[in-house]
Each structure stands twice: as C-alpha cells, then as structure tokens.
Design a protein around this nucleic acid. Structure first.
Lengths: 163, 163
DNA sequence: GTTAGTGCAAACCTTTTGCAGCTCT
DNA sequence: AGAGCTGCAAAAGGTTTGCACTAAC
C-alpha cells in the first residue's frame, strides 16, 4: 500500500481517489526504483488491463503539480522520457552511470549549503531542485578503459590475447 | 565570431567546419543566453535560409557528444525542449524562476564539494553534472503572493481596491 | 445528482533516420 | 577523389488534448 501521506494529501484537496489513481500511487511509492511513464503503465496494466496510458500521464502531472512527486531525467540515459519518485526522502542528488545505467543517490551537506546560499544570495524561493551527475561508476571505469583500448587497436587486441 | 576553442577542438578531431556549423557555433557561444534547438534554427536561418532544422540537431548532438556544449532542461520552463550552452565557464547551477522564466547562474563552493564528495564516496568518474533549481525570484515572490490572494477571493479583491 | 475523472482516438512537439546529392579537405 | 555532411521527407518517441461516457463523492 502507498504511504498514507500522498493519498491523504490528495483527499484534503478534494482530489478523487479513483481505482486507477490508487493503483498508480501504490506503484510509484511502492517500488524502490525510478520508473518512467511507460514502465508505470505496463505495471499498472497488470493490475487493471483497462487502465489507459493517458491516465498515467494525467496522474503524474497531478502529482507533479501538487509537489508530491519529483521528475527526473537521469541524464537521458535510455531516452528522453522522465522518471518519477515520491518526495518522501530528504533532498538528494542522482548519480547515473552512463555505461551501466545504475543510479545512486547522494545525501549530504553540500546540497543544503547550495540551497541556503541560493536562497540568501538571490532572495530566491526554492520550490524544486534537481541535481544529476553522469559519469562512470567504479565498476564501469575499468571496463570502459578496456573498451577504449580495443577501439584504438581495432579488433586485434582481443584476438591477440588468445594466441 | 565563436571562440577559437570549439572550432579548433573540432578541427583536431578531423570534423569538417562547414558553413552551417560555423553559423551555429557562432550563435551558440556568441549569444549570452540559453538557446533551444528551435531558437537556434530560427537565428541560423536568418544567416542562411537554406539551413535545415535537422542540421541544427545533428550539430548539437555532435557538440554534446564531444563535451563542447552542455544540455539543460531549465526545469522544462516553456516546454520539453532542451537548452544549450558552451562549456567554457566553471561548473555552475541554473536557477530558474518558474513565473517569469529568468535564469540565474550560481557559482560557488557547494558545487565543488558535491563533486569531490561524489567522486570519493562512490569512486565515481564524473563526466557531466547538472543542477537546476526552480522557484520564484525575489521579484516574482511578491507578485505570486498577490495572485494567490486574488484566486482565493475570486475577482473581488482587484475590483475592491478600485472603489 | 454533480462534477471530476476516464478511455479512446487523434493531434502535438521535439528529435531522429534513410537516402540521394553536395562540399569540405 | 572521396568520406563526411546536408537537405528533404518521413518516421519515431514521448506527451497532450477533445470529447463522450463513467464513477467518486
């Protein structure tokens, strides 16, 4: 079940909790991962085959506008779609490996500092923040280096090792 | 004219400096603002009416992959397109007013700290970072507050003030 | 019973691709 | 000369909209 938080928040505003919305809410904050609209649609269809893709988009828009979910790009790894996560946790940055797609989350004081400095320096009222960092995770750095060598030497290096 | 930097960098890699690319490069790092593909296309067409939108996209992709320009979303203010800027300056965050669309840039040590902590904490090799902050600028906070009052009271308040 | 919400089809916007012809180097 | 680049047309991907029907409150 979804945390009461989001549902209550919607109810308070007079938003109707339809069967479709309940399914989607449970998926969004039930799954630990970052889902995009299409994945959400596919999962929701398993629970209600009639549920339409458009309803997914409309629900996401509703939640986004209500400040209940955050929209991520994850550096467009995998396409130009958006990914979603509930706004339960503390502010955090997303670290995306551009080779394997793994996403890490970083919580820490640099983010608080940044927020405070922007508020005080510009007199800015912050509503949303998004920090995304793309690169290679510790595992992929090694593999990436190997790939570059193979490209430089053509296909020879991999064959050479066999002989 | 565009800074020699980008053109040289392309030449070194054996990329051809065509008439179209020169026009686009000059626009991208000539204008101080963040342009999207369509704006870039419109400006480029003034200099060469035959230049095609597709060439704009292909050039942007080339520059992006070469690490010469960075792609921004600016919190999707104004649509789902991307905005571009040359990677000349130091790393910085973009602060977008969601009411008037003004974009500010923030340079400061929280960003360096964040970078260092992510590198050391995850052993991550950072290639790109993007920090976007959305909210209301000091000017729009006031106007926004006024708008909310008007919505709450219906159209009355604005008329009431006249009497 | 009302009014908000849904499904369906169709449109929309941004970006990519296939291919024939052109142009930098 | 020849690979690389462009323009054109067409398609693709992701998301939104109009409208009649349905269901939550």
């Amino acid at each position: 079940m979804a945390q009461a938080g989001i549902k209550d928040s919607l109810r308070e505003r007079g938003v109707r909790l339809t069967r479709q919305r309940k399914i989607l809410l449970d998926l969004i904050d039930g799954s630990g991962v970052h889902l995009d609209a299409e994945q959400l649609y596919q999962l929701a269809k398993e629970k209600d085959p009639k549920l339409n893709r458009v309803t997914v988009y409309r629900t996401l828009k509703l939640l986004k506008q209500g400040g209940l979910v955050d929209e991520l790009d994850l550096m467009h790894y995998g396409g130009d779609q958006h990914y979603y996560e509930t706004r339960l946790k503390q502010e955090h940055a997303h670290i995306i490996c551009l080779r394997c797609g793994k996403v890490e989350e970083f919580f820490g004081e640099p983010l608080h500092r940044l927020r405070k400095q922007v508020e005080s320096h510009f007199g800015f009222q912050i509503l949303i923040t998004r920090t995304e960092i793309g690169g290679y995770c510790s595992h992929c750095q090694v593999l990436r280096a190997r790939e570059l060598v193979e490209v430089r030497d053509g296909d020879h290096s991999s064959r050479a090792r066999k002989s």
